[in-house]
Design a protein around this nucleic acid. Sequence first.
DNA 1: CGTAGACTTGAGAACCTTCAATCAGTGTGG
DNA 2: CCACACTGATTGAAGGTTCTCAAGTCTACG
Lengths: 259, 259
Amino acid sequence: MTIADSSAFRVSNLRQACAHCGLNQLCLPMALSEADMEQLDSIVERRKPLKRGSHLYRAGDGFKAIYAVRSGSLKTFSVTETGEEQVTGFHLPGELIGLDAINSWVHPCSASALETTSVCALPFEELEQLAAHIPGLQRQLLRLMSKEIFADQEMLFAMARRSAEERLAMLLLSFSDRFSRRGLSATRFRLPMARSDLGNYLGLAPETMSRLFRRFSENGWLSADGREIQLLDIAALTELSGRPTDDEPPVGKLHHSSL
Amino acid sequence: MTIADSSAFRVSNLRQACAHCGLNQLCLPMALSEADMEQLDSIVERRKPLKRGSHLYRAGDGFKAIYAVRSGSLKTFSVTETGEEQVTGFHLPGELIGLDAINSWVHPCSASALETTSVCALPFEELEQLAAHIPGLQRQLLRLMSKEIFADQEMLFAMARRSAEERLAMLLLSFSDRFSRRGLSATRFRLPMARSDLGNYLGLAPETMSRLFRRFSENGWLSADGREIQLLDIAALTELSGRPTDDEPPVGKLHHSSL
DNA sequence: CGTAGACTTGAGAACCTTCAATCAGTGTGG
DNA sequence: CCACACTGATTGAAGGTTCTCAAGTCTACG
C-alpha cells in the first residue's frame, strides 16, 4: 500500500513508458519516433488506480488534462438538474477521455471507473505545446478527436433509426471488435458494466435490455451469464446491426423483376 | 467595408480576407493576430457558390479539406446501403464541416447545400502545418472539434431520453441561438430545410413533425408558415427543452389506491 | 396550368416504457 | 449459521408515444 504511494507514480519510470506500453498502437503515441515518445512520456502523469465506482472527474470540474485509459474501464455520463443520468460512453484501455472539455475548459460530463482502473493524465496545456512541435502527435490528436466525432454520429444514427435489437447488436459487435483489438477474445468477454448502464447508453429501459438478452439467447446468437457474454453467431448480429446482407431480400415481393 | 489598413493591401483578395469576414469570431480565425490571419488567408480557397441541392462532397470521397460555411447553409448526412438517409447536422455560416473525415481520410458522410451556399476550403495538410506554427490556430481547431463532440453528445442525450416535443423545442432554440449569434433575429427566421430533413435529424417521421408544429402553434409557442418560423414563447420552449418544469412536481399524485 | 414534391391529417398498429412483483447474488449483523 | 437488507436482473401486464399506411391538400415552378 505505502509502496505504491504517490511518489513512485509521479516519476516517469521506464517500465511504464509509452514506448513499452502495449497500448501504444491504439493510443496517442501511435507512429511517434522513440525520441518523440520520450518527450510525451515526460509530461504524462501516471495516476494510481481508481477503485470501482470512484470518479476520475465530475461534471463541472475545471479541465486540466486529457486521460488515456491504461487498464480497466470507465463510463462517462452527464447528469441533468433532475438527477437523470445519461451514459455517453464506455472507455477501454488505449482510449482517450475528456476531449469534450477542451472547448469550455470545464468537464461537461463525469467519468467514473467501472472496475479497478488506471489512467495516464496528459496535462492539456503541455500536450498542446508538445503537439505543436511533434507533427505526428498533433495529427494523432486530431485523428482521435475526429474518430470520436464519427463514432458519436454513428451512435446518433443508431438512436434515430435503429430498433432496440439493432442497437444492442451494434453495441455487442463494437465491444467484440474493441476487445479483440486489445488481444482479447472477440467472442467471449466480460462486460464491465451493469445492464442498466448498457441500456442507459442505448436509450433503452433496463427491462428492455433484459428482454433483449433473453431473445438473443433464444435465437442462439449469444449466451449470457450475467456480465459474462459469449457471442455465438456473429454473422446474425452483424446482419442485424447494419448491413442488411442483401442475401435476404423480401422474397415474397414480386415487384421489381429487373433493376 | 474597406476603410483600408495599409497592411491588408498586400493580400490578394482583400474583400474576402478572413480579417474582414464578419464571421471570424465564430470561425477558425477567432483570436488570431492580423499576421496569423494573413497566413491563414493564404491557404484558404474561396469556392464559387454551390447551388441548392448540389453536393460539396459525397460519402466516400477522399478527404482533402475542411470547409467553413461562408454564406447559406448545408446539411450533412450519411446514407446506408439500403438508401436510408440520416441527417447528421445542419451547418450555418461560420461553422466548420468535414472534421469527421480526418481520422480515415475519407468523408464518412455527404454534404449538400440547402440553399445557394458558399464555403471556404481549408486544405487539411496545409492547415495542419499552419496549426503547428500558430498556437492560437491549433487551439481553436481543437476547440471547435471538442465543441462538436460535445454537441453530438448533447444530441445523443436528446435522442435517448427526450420526447419528440422536447427534441423539437431544443432544435428550435438551437437555431434561434445560432441565428442570433449571426446578427439575425432570435425569434423570426426562415428554416432553410424541409420538415422531413428536420424530422430525419431528430429521428422523427415527417408526419410527427407536422403534428408537433401544429401542437406548438395551438399552444401559442410559435407560429409557422411553411419554413418561416416565429417563436412566440421562448420561455415555454426553454422549459420544454431541458429543465423538466419543476413547477409541476408530482404533488397531486396519490400513490396507487387500486387499479 | 399541370405535375411533382412537400406538407397535413386520420386511423390503426408496433415498439418500447412504466409499473409492480419476484428472484438471485452479495455483504452484514445478530 | 442464518436472517436481513440491498442492489441488479427478470418477468408480466398495461399503456403511451410515435410509426406506418393511406389519402388528401397545398405549393413551387417549369
